[in-house]
Design a protein around this nucleic acid. Structure first.
Length: 837
RNA sequence: GCCGAUGUGGCGAAAUGGCAGACGCAACGGACUUAAAAUCCGUUGGGCUUAACGGCCCGUGCCGGUUCGAGUCCGGCCAUCGGUACCA
């Protein structure tokens, strides 16, 4: 941009103060025991999600959250808190590695360059970070402890009795490797043949690689897994009290996906042409176990479906169907994930020839395989209840399977509870399709809706192939055609049915989670090496004394065609001893970000990942009361309830984007809980209060990206308007949480405002020099001025607490407008105004 | 499909159930200036009315409800954005 007149000399003011801040270590927070530490001050921890230092540098989106936290940090310091406000770098990861592959330059070099660029930008923006606590995940003094934490995980197991992680030494079983929280398993991964590498789920979009758009296939590989599923229950339960946006909590809950239900065993029916006569008897006693959330619909199970990959498939397929089944399985495994989801609307499957017995109705039902049943969830097998499940209905229609209705829609509140047909033998079940009288009586008459009591017996017909819009009734209602539970409401029926199954030894209550164990290894160069060696096909930890385990110096970082990790090229490094070789995989990028907030508490500690006293001090949950003992608690609008709940007291703050709602935030909580269980931490949750900043769009209203050429570099803005105008505009744009477009005119406006503030106090003479304005006077403010002054103090304090920075700035504008016209300005009022950002 | 968020001037946005549009941008008019920039002052949701001061009506995505009173609360839709996708 060309030479432009500065509305006020920010280019002189800002660098001057910024370097003074550094010199005086103004933002350094002393730890307990350090010089300058004042135990009388309460602590406050304001955390930003640390950035990945990419080659492109920061754009104006990054500093939005950083500006908000910076205001809070400064505000809390003014109020007498000992404030921890750190910054660091999440520097392992794919982009640096890919850049290295392209240019041959070692990722460490580019990483350092990128960090330097990011840091320059952040410093010029003028944030009040305690740079003495800066950390970098690729620094050996840091990842030494990432590796150490991995070994803690590796050396522990989840004790189901205590529901806690415990040292593996407390495990009394004989195969400790089978219960470790870090374990090795052969699992399908996203393999991209074109790129010759394995990709994380996040890097696969619609079955294609995010980079290049190449097809990705599932392929089994030996991988390290972390047993996050053991913590599923706690990850849900302990989410509840956190001051997080409800939306994020919901996202995590859904991701974990808890469903309560029952496992039910279906005995296989004897089939004449079972393939192995010798094992016929065994086969006859075999059962298929399914998971269902609707045990109350057991009588409606008219067929079963196994996932094509289900291990039982081979054993129960009849000779006659063997080829068809093999074909289908081949077809399915050839499908990419994309195709498999694409075909989701058109269900397919084949009959195995086998039959099972519905334990309730004792009816013989066919066993199919179909790819709409997933091996990875539940038991990999389902009972098909077409009348009450949309997917089952679609499948049953396509293959002409029987549809049996067993739940009747009930008018709300009218459901009868007693009078169940307990004691009726299930054998008598089928012929009768009788609606119990109680149901009929309870029903409110509603003749125009078809599916009410009188018409129930014929309801089955409604599902005929031609009735395209007849839908499965999946809501709660009243059980019918189910002798054991007829007349019971769905919830009651579920309970009775499950009780009955448990009594009969045919099933049990279970809870299932969508959450899978965390695939923790990557076939990449630029990540933390595992502190693990292999000896005789068995893994073992290397001693702590050998940490940090540095990656080998390599010149060729390219992934191999076979999926063998690039570390394999470092022959010397790989050889650990005559009998042992090193683990070749590296950890995923999330490893470093799982605990960085802990390291900030005590970044220099060389004997522990975080000192105990520092951890207790900074991570403690008790809301620090202000020294005066009266931290303002403010009533807020219900709209702002999320923020308001968290506004109270000194609850620590974590600000970042929604994109980490499930991944980083879930992984970090998981690690935190393990470390807590093992006695290394004083709290069981890492982040008490979370706020998401919204995305900043380009001026064209599109997401900022190189592709649209709408990316804005903070340094360009600062060159023209100064860092204060930049930060002030970021906050004035609108509510923090909201998505909003950038506007240079808006920056201009805010810059004018700051210039007006400047000119309230300063005046430019003929020579272009600034001097104190003669309008300043030692006079008391008049009544209306006093009113504005106090309104501003009140509004700004309240708004900062509530993170409503845009309205705080608006109020300060009102203040300034009120004083610009007056001929003489009360000095006291002007001093008050310098509550500014 | 499901889940979530959002919907107010030309634009970014304000508004404990109580005067809708604070504050800013843009636009227009004026002052200063030879002129411009900068700065300062004024007007700015729509419509009707008055010579004028002023007055009146309509307006917060759509339809309905609760209330003395609804942008705000309740019910039902619509649109946009984001997440998710056969999880039994």
């Amino acid at each position: 941009m060309s030479e432009r007149r500065k509305p006020y000399p920010f280019d002189a003011i800002e660098p001057k103060w910024q370097s003074l801040w550094d010199e005086r270590r103004l933002f350094h927070a002393p730890n307990p025991g350090e010089p300058g530490f004042d135990p009388a001050r309460p602590k406050y921890y304001v955390l930003d999600m640390f950035p990945y230092p990419s080659g492109a540098g920061l754009h104006v989106g990054h500093p939005e959250g950083y500006t908000a936290t910076d205001i809070i940090a400064r505000y809390k310091r003014f109020r007498g808190f000992n404030v921890l406000h750190p910054m660091g770098w999440d520097a392992f990861g794919l982009p640096a590695e890919q850049y290295a592959i392209r240019t041959g330059q070692h990722p460490e070099i580019t990483t350092h360059e990128n960090i330097a660029r990011f840091k320059t930008q952040l410093k010029r923006i003028g944030f009040s970070y305690d740079w003495e606590r800066e950390i970098t995940t690729t620094d050996p003094t840091y990842f030494r402890w990432t590796q150490w934490i991995f070994l803690q995980i590796y050396n522990s197991w989840f004790n189901p009795d205590t529901r806690r992680a415990e040292p593996i030494s407390s495990y009394t079983g004989d195969d400790s490797d089978s219960v470790r929280l870090a374990y090795v398993a052969e699992v399908p991964v996203n393999w991209c043949p074109e790129l010759g590498t394995v990709l994380a789920n996040e890097e696969v979009i619609d079955g294609k690689s995010e980079v290049g758009g190449f097809p990705v296939v599932r392929r089994p590989m030996r991988q390290w897994m972390l047993r996050i599923t053991a913590f599923a229950e706690r990850l849900i339960d302990e989410l509840e009290p956190l001051a997080w946006p409800e939306g994020i909590k919901l996202l995590q809950r859904n991701w974990i996906g808890k469903s309560e239900g029952a496992e039910v065993q279906f005995p296989l029916a004897q089939v004449p042409d079972l393939p192995w006569a010798a094992t016929r008897e065994l086969e006859a006693r075999a059962t298929i176990t399914v998971f269902t959330t609707r045990p109350d619909t057991l009588y409606g199970a008219t067929y079963m479906v196994l996932a094509p990959e289900h291990p039982l498939v081979d054993r129960l397929t009849t000779n006659e169907k063997r080829d068809a089944v093999a074909d289908y399985r081949a077809q399915v495994s050839a499908k990419s994930d994309l195709e498999r989801t694409d075909l989701a609307k058109d269900k397919s499957g084949v009959f195995t020839g086998a039959y099972a017995i519905n334990p309730a109705s004792e009816e013989r039902i066919p066993v199919w395989i179909a790819d709409y049943v997933l091996m990875g969830y539940g038991t990999g097998a389902i009972m098909g209840v077409p009348a009450h499940d949309e997917r089952d209905l679609e499948f049953a229609r396509r293959y002409g399977l029987r549809i049996q209705e067993v739940v009747l829609p009930a008018a709300p509140g009218s459901a009868p509870v007693s009078g169940a047909g307990f004691g009726v033998s299930p054998k008598q079940a089928f012929p009768k399709v009788e609606v119990p009288d109680k149901v009929r009586e309870g029903e409110t008459p509603a003749p125009e809706t078809g599916a009410l009591p009188g018409s129930a017996p014929s309801a089955v017909l409604n599902y005929g192939d031609t009735a395209g819009h007849a839908e499965a009734f999946i809501d709660d209602g009243v059980a019918i055609n189910s002798p054991l539970i007829d007349g019971l409401t769905t919830s009651e029926a579920k309970r009775r049915m499950t009780d009955w199954l448990e009594e009969q030894g045919l099933g049990r209550r279970t809870i299932n989670y969508k959450l899978r164990d965390w695939l923790f290894s990557r076939q990449r160069y630029w990540g933390e090496p595992f502190p693990i060696v292999w000896r005789d096909g068995k893994h073992e930890a290397i001693p702590d004394s050998e940490l940090p385990l540095l990656p080998p110096p390599l010149h060729d970082f390219k992934p191999t065609a076979t999926g063998e990790p690039p570390l394999a090229r470092a022959k010397e490094w790989v050889r650990y001893s005559d009998q042992a070789t090193r683990e070749l995989n590296t950890m995923p990028q999330w490893a470093g970000s799982c605990w960085y907030y802990l390291r900030y508490c005590d970044p220099e500690n060389s004997s522990r990942f975080v000192g105990q006293e520092a951890e207790r001090y900074w991570m403690s949950v008790e809301a620090g009361a202000s020294p005066a003992g009266r931290e303002p608690t403010l009533p807020r609008s219900p709209k702002a309830a999320d923020t308001a709940a968290a506004t109270l007291g000194g609850v620590d703050l974590y600000v970042g984007g929604t994109e980490h709602a499930v991944l980083h935030l879930l992984y970090a909580r998981f690690w935190h809980k393990m470390l807590f269980d093992l006695g290394h931490l004083s709290t069981s949750e890492p982040f008490q209060r979370l706020v998401n900043q919204g995305i900043i769009l380009g001026e064209d209203g599109r997401k900022m990206s190189k592709r649209w050429g709408n990316v804005i570099d903070p340094l360009d803005v600062i060159a023209d308007y100064g860092a204060d105008a930049f930060r002030c505009y970021e906050m004035f744009m609108g509510p923090l949480e909201q998505m909003k477009p950038w506007s240079m005119n808006g920056v201009e406006g805010v810059s004018r405002f700051l210039a007006r503030v400047w000119r309230l106090l300063m005046e430019e003479n003929q020579a272009g020099e600034w001097a104190l304005s003669p309008t300043l006077a030692e006079i008391p403010p008049d009544k209306p001025q006093l009113k504005v002054i106090h309104a501003t103090i009140k509004k700004v304090s309240e708004d900062i607490e509530a993170l409503s920075f845009n309205t705080a700035i608006a109020q300060m504008m009102i203040f300034v407008n009120a004083f610009t016209t007056t001929a003489s300005r009360p000095v006291a009022a002007m001093r008050t105004l310098l509550l500014l950002l």
